[in-house]
């Protein structure tokens, strides 16, 4: 069991994370937040890359920094962007990392073939990586994270650069993996985790907002999400009045999905809230700020 206890991270005056408390067990956790919310900071703390300014992180009751290599031995990590040697082949590269992960060469070779097969790279095993596409590099990254058969698998934006087919395949892989280990996926793409995450963690304003199952999180907006059809002309006024979740054109009119917490009007249709709705609602200021 992985526990984050009162962890904060500050860089001088700037606070990146404040007083985070979390508990992870076996299963798949989705870490959902817009860019800049402190997602990567949390991930990097879990990966021992940065130390909390306050608080600590424990695995089975022991501080992970004190556990040192005992902890990292259990860890599989895929950073958002990671370095590789251009003139290495995936096999050479993974052999190199296998050595760092303390895996014997024979065992590693076997494992590497298996994993590269799993991420559909078996026909480029010995090609130099400098000619690889972004998606291929990303798949090498996924494969390397699994090299040591980790008990804790942390993936930072793992689906970046993957096409829809690869994405679907990847989701399968994750569900399978999460059966007997802890998998943490950070993403801002809701559909990546909506259907597979046991729990979703949301961070807002450097602090923990939700840590719950998808259903429970969605339930917070039960009865507040509506859809209705309006004219183009009234769209502007509508936007000012309500929190819009999506707009869809149909037959010259617009179907809008929005949130309202008071008494609904008659022509509105109440719809079940989706994770995406919660995301858009909670981060509405930040998202509008971004645009």
């Amino acid at each position: 069991m992985l526990v984050v206890k009162d962890a904060s991270k500050r860089y001088g005056d700037f606070t990146a994370l404040q007083q985070i408390n979390l508990e992870f067990n076996t299963g798949l956790y989705g870490l959902l937040a817009p860019n800049g919310a402190g997602k990567t900071t949390l991930i990097k703390m879990l990966a021992t890359l940065i130390t909390p300014s306050e608080g600590e992180i424990q695995y089975n009751g022991k501080n992970i920094l004190e556990m040192d290599e005992q902890y990292r031995e259990l860890l599989g990590f895929l950073p958002q962007q990671f370095g590789y040697y251009k003139n290495f082949s995936p096999k050479q590269y993974m052999l190199y990392l296998a050595a760092l992960k303390g895996i014997g060469k024979k065992e590693a070779l076997h494992k590497i073939n298996e994993l590269l097969d799993k991420v559909a790279l078996s026909d480029v095993v010995n090609k130099k990586m400098k000619k690889f596409s972004g998606g291929m590099i990303q798949r090498v990254g996924i494969a390397q994270a699994l090299l040591n058969d980790p008990k804790i698998l942390i993936l930072d934006e793992p689906t970046a650069g993957l096409d829809p087919k690869e994405r679907a395949r990847f989701r399968h892989l994750l569900t399978e993996l999460a059966r007997d280990r802890l998998v943490i996926i950070s993403t801002h793409i809701v559909s990546d985790i909506e259907s597979i995450a046991n729990e979703v963690i949301m961070i807002k304003n450097k602090q923990l907002l939700y840590k719950d199952s998808v259903e429970e999180i969605c339930a917070t907006l039960n009865g507040n999400v509506f859809e209705t059809t309006i004219d183009f002309e009234s769209l502007k006024a509508f936007r000012k009045k309500f929190v819009l979740l999506s707009e869809k054109q149909e037959y010259g009119k617009i179907i809008v999905r929005f949130i309202h917490k008071g008494v609904p009007e008659v022509e509105w249709i109440s719809v079940p809230p989706q994770l995406e709705d919660v995301f858009l609602y909670e981060y509405r200021d930040e998202i509008e700020g971004e645009v």
Binding site: L49, Y84, L100
Partner: peptide, 14 residues
């Protein structure tokens, strides 16, 4: 400068 430390320092060897 290549950003390899992320992988290197999270491996067992660390």
């Amino acid at each position: 400068s290549r950003g390899l430390l992320l992988l290197q320092y999270t491996s067992k060897k660390g």
